[in-house]
């Protein structure tokens, strides 16, 4: 399949890229391209111009700084997968990365692109909701930070302006007794989630849940925060009764559509089961035996 014609630019710096975006409001940003290029081949996307970020140096970092894990726009999924820091300290992010597409796609795909594309079927948006992450948008007038809850604005829609680049993802460094997990049901490697659930939490000294974030993948027009489930568990001991109750709320509050992957009732039930499993795994990891 051949995409429609477009103009191609591969600027060497972020300011150059922003200048191009500013003078070409219909331009699309290309990072990994593993979602955008297939869409262009199907001609679901026909951008007049492609601004390829791949020639910009120094954007592939993964580092902790000032209480945040900071991930540059061009850090590939495979680099997250190979990062000892991510594997040991950010198990929710590690789980999620491993469930994105397949190993070859992950060699090219980026976390920032996964978020900026804002496909409700993508895995990282729910995980970023669970982490209460934030993103840095770089535009003509500098950087602004956007909380993840304000970032997703519906199907394929984000808070980014047409001349802004998602330059960095920031995940809060976990406090003591933290744990997280991502559970995804997929029909086969490389498929989008039938449903997915991301959980990040921490326990207080007495073992009660102090803070918890729960994000849901592909059961709504955007990644959803399971707010009632979070509220139900905050301040409680993570025992079976409370976990089941929180999972029931997630089942009720998600908004799945029927498709080839399953009907609405099936998906709701799946969300309930995956929510229980993800909470249990997150709690086990927070207790240091995950």
């Amino acid at each position: 399949m051949i995409p429609a014609q477009f103009q191609y630019a591969a600027p060497a710096s972020i300011p150059d890229a922003i200048a191009l975006l500013k003078s070409n409001p219909d331009a699309k940003i290309l990072s990994g391209g593993q979602s955008l290029i297939p869409l262009m081949k199907f001609r679901l996307a026909q951008p007049a111009m492609i601004v390829d970020l791949n020639n910009i140096g120094g954007l592939d970092y993964i580092r902790e700084q000032g209480g945040w894990l900071k991930i540059g726009a061009l850090a590939r999924e495979s680099e997250l997968e190979d990062s000892a820091l991510v594997r040991e300290k950010y198990p929710l992010l590690y789980d999620t990365t491993l469930s994105v597409a397949d190993p070859i796609v992950r060699n090219r795909a980026t976390l920032a692109g996964n978020l900026a594309h804002a496909d409700p079927a993508n895995d990282h948006p729910a995980t970023m909701l669970a982490y209460r992450a934030q993103v840095v948008a770089t535009g003509t007038s500098g950087n602004r930070t956007i909380a993840i809850d304000d970032f997703f604005q519906g199907l394929f829609a984000t808070a980014l302006a047409s001349d802004e680049i998602l330059s960095e993802v920031q995940i809060p460094a976990p406090v003591a007794r933290s744990g997280g997990a991502y559970f995804k049901m997929e029909r086969k490697v490389g498929d989008f989630a039938t449903a997915g659930v991301a959980v990040q939490l921490n326990l207080d000294a007495s073992g009660k849940i102090e803070q918890i974030g729960i994000g849901l993948t592909n059961v709504g027009l955007q990644a959803l925060r399971a707010k009632r489930s979070e509220d139900a568990l905050r301040g409680e001991m993570p025992d079976a009764k409370w976990i089941e109750r929180a999972a029931m709320f997630a089942q009720e509050d998600c908004e799945p559509n029927a498709d080839l992957r399953g009907g609405v009732e099936y998906k709701r039930n799946l969300v309930r089961v995956l929510t229980m499993r993800a909470i249990e795994k997150a709690v086990a990891r927070a207790r240091g035996n995950g």
Binding site: Y8, A10, G33, Q34, I37, P38, I50, D52, N54, P103, I104, V105, N107, R108
Partner: peptide, 18 residues
Amino acid sequence: TVLVDGVPMKSCTMFAVQ
């Protein structure tokens, strides 16, 4: 799949100019 600077990539999902 081909190797691009040693890394496996799906060459149907990359432009030649890249």
